[in-house]
Design a protein around this nucleic acid. Sequence first.
RNA 1: GUCACAGUGGCUCAGUUGGAUAGAGCAACGGUCUUCUAAACCGUAGGUCGUGAGUUCGAAUCUCACCUGUGACACCA
Length: 564
Amino acid sequence: MDSKKLVVDALLKVLPDEITEEQVQKLIEKPKTSDLGDYAFPTFILAKSLHKAPNMIAEDLVGKIDQAGFEKVVNTGAYINFFLDKSSFSNDVLHAVINDKANYGNQDEGKGRNVPIDMSSPNIAKPMSMGHLRSTVIGNSVAKIEKKLNYQPIKINHLGDWGTQFGKLIVGYKMWGSEADVEADPINNLLKYYVRFHKEAEDKPELDDEARAWFKKMEDGDEEALKLWAWFKDLSLKEFNRIYARLGVTFDHYTGESFYNDKMDAIVDTLREKGLLKESRGAEIVDLSDHDLSPALIRKTDGATLYITRDLAAAKYRKDTFDFVKSLYIVGSEQSEHFKKLKLVLKKMGYDWSDDITHIEFGLITTGGKKLSTRKGNVILLEGVLQDAVDLAKKQINEKNPDLKNKDDVAEAVGVGAVVFHDLKNERRDSFDFNLEEVVRFEGETGPYVQYTNARALSILRKAANLDYADADDLSLADPEAWDTIKLLQEFPAVIKRAGRIYEPSVIAKYALKLAKSFNQYYAHSKILNEDAGLNARLALVKSVTTVLQESLNLLGVKAPEEM
RNA sequence: GUCACAGUGGCUCAGUUGGAUAGAGCAACGGUCUUCUAAACCGUAGGUCGUGAGUUCGAAUCUCACCUGUGACACCA
């Protein structure tokens, strides 16, 4: 079913010998619109060697090309345009999707090998903000894409459950908090202490010293400090899990930073043995000036560890435990230097697998052009956004489809889907300013648009439930109205590959929008349930579109309600 | 200051490996529900692709310089 090969072969027969198959492969392009054919070959590069104008060359070659197997081959100016045979092409594509179902587009690139994915990683005792949404949904989608390529993703929630921040929290709690307040509304009250701490520490720097001291106690195993810490953590996880459930995200491990607490000495020892550790200004560092980077701080002046120390331990642990082929980190791009350092230090330690680590970075969400900061108290709470979106979806359902069953479930799927899709539809590196109206929009290039397209298509299939189009031998569909949709269906496997190669869920989101739009155009102009010779093929097309739309949404972590 | 990333219609963004008149969505204006869900479809209007050079038959795409924005730059993560 390799239609491009058909074109390449036809060209090779008539092109001068010095042009290789590889060159032809590279030169062939897909025209922007179907009226210029399905493949095109530009003849400019032949002009010099043949001493002829490109459009003359194109005209010449068209005369020589064997047109068998094509609908037609023509030239437009300097281009040779190939039009595929719609009947056989559609027959092949539709059979492939109907047979493979949700497995359509699966690949075996990963051969079942392990790929740990460091994702979500919210900080204990802080509410989940829109910022955490990004790491969570990108990670979730990347994991699904990896799985489709037959890697074995291992989703790790690298909780921010260790560090000086807990010293601050303990200080704040002891000064202004009470057990009753925390139990009543854990995250919000803990957040209050944290924000107040930062405010007061501006005038009273001794508070920072106190906080550092408490964290040092945690590292030294102090009972009171650890008891408070465990309590904060437990309460936080309960709230996080409620949100993860709404997003449909699960994890294989919740090994946060604290998990590596007892693995830190080994890493520091190794660094020392390899002569990488140096003392500088009272702290222990790995010098990276040979790479124009500031040093990696391994131990603070007071002996406590830092972010990178824990990440070194985590990287090593993951290699030892999972024997990964690649190890992914879904973390904001503001930390790109951290990962550069992390990989470098591992490399200096002699670990070649440092090269298999990839930082999958994403852009910042800002509000009013400013970075979200828990410390300063300007956060956009994820749960609030989800609820706003779901409420709006419910309102729309009541207006547009008041008789719908299980309205609440559908509203949840549509509202949450809109938020998740919005986050994934643009390149992950792009930063965007938060705008509620835009995030919960249901029209145009949105998640609900894709969901709605799928729901309408399913509605047609319900009306044709008594027909066995799926078993029909002939699924050829020469209808030009359906052509773009059929070609898009055929592209799906290549889309998966590309999304996987560059770790970009947006590639799939964009594809889903394109497919939905193309199908909506077809739907608006053609009557599908007509009793004529093309009925089986049309129904197979509708069925294939629902299969691929649903799988696309699934890969993005968005639900596909059957009715809405 | 150094490094990284970005700059495409009023707004938000597409644009594999350079290719045919730069595409969508929102917002604006106009049209389409007695027929498979109008969260849809069709049309109109709107762009010197940050600026200036260079490479090329051909540049939004590659190179260089500059401008603007954002982020990172040792005891936070």
